[in-house]
């Protein structure tokens, strides 16, 4: 009984940590539009922070409060939905509605594959993706990543 209580506590703490961390990432990814002049925005640290992990192409990014976001439309979908997944998990923790890890893994790999196909086919000019199609695919991929992490069996006793 003591062990079960301890496991549950650690599990919630891990989820809370992931929730806070991913939410901070999503807020940072929105860029400095809410406090910086638009022409100065691309020189703020938000852009340096994400420059390692995103191309930040202005033609492939949304604006937020008149300034380019710190990541492209696909990445804002990934970061936003990744955080949303942990919020949803936190709010529905008492209900057994989340998929088992096997199904979550399949869905994660499906959207990873679809994202790869979208990038490849767009590069080969087979089709032209849009801000919203990239956002949608990115969001599905990001959501499945957090669903996979928080799926059943993920918080083992050693976490």
């Amino acid at each position: 009984m003591v062990q079960l209580t301890a496991q549950s506590e650690i599990s919630s703490r891990a989820n809370l940590l992931l929730l806070i961390g991913s939410s901070l990432l999503a807020i940072l990814a929105l860029g400095p539009g809410w406090y910086a002049d638009d022409f100065l925005a691309p020189f703020h640290w938000h852009y340096s922070f994400f420059s390692w992990v995103c191309h930040q192409d202005p033609t492939r990014s949304f604006d937020f409060m008149d300034a380019q976001m710190a990541v492209c439309s696909r990445c804002i979908g990934i970061y936003g939905a990744f955080a949303l997944g942990f919020w949803a998990k936190g709010l529905t923790a008492k209900f057994e509605i989340w998929p088992a890890s096997e199904l979550a893994l399949r869905l994660f790999l499906l959207f990873l594959g679809l994202t790869g196909i979208d990038v490849l086919f767009n590069a080969l000019d087979v089709w032209t993706n849009t801000h919203y199609s990239r956002l949608l695919l990115g969001a599905c991929f990001g959501l499945m990543a957090s669903v996979l992490i928080s799926s059943r069996e993920s918080f083992s006793k050693n976490v």
Binding site: H55, D57, A123
Partner: peptide, 11 residues
């Protein structure tokens, strides 16, 4: 920037 797209997830 186009080339960097391929490196988007490399990091």
């Amino acid at each position: 920037q186009g080339l960097w797209i391929s490196a988007c997830l490399v990091s």
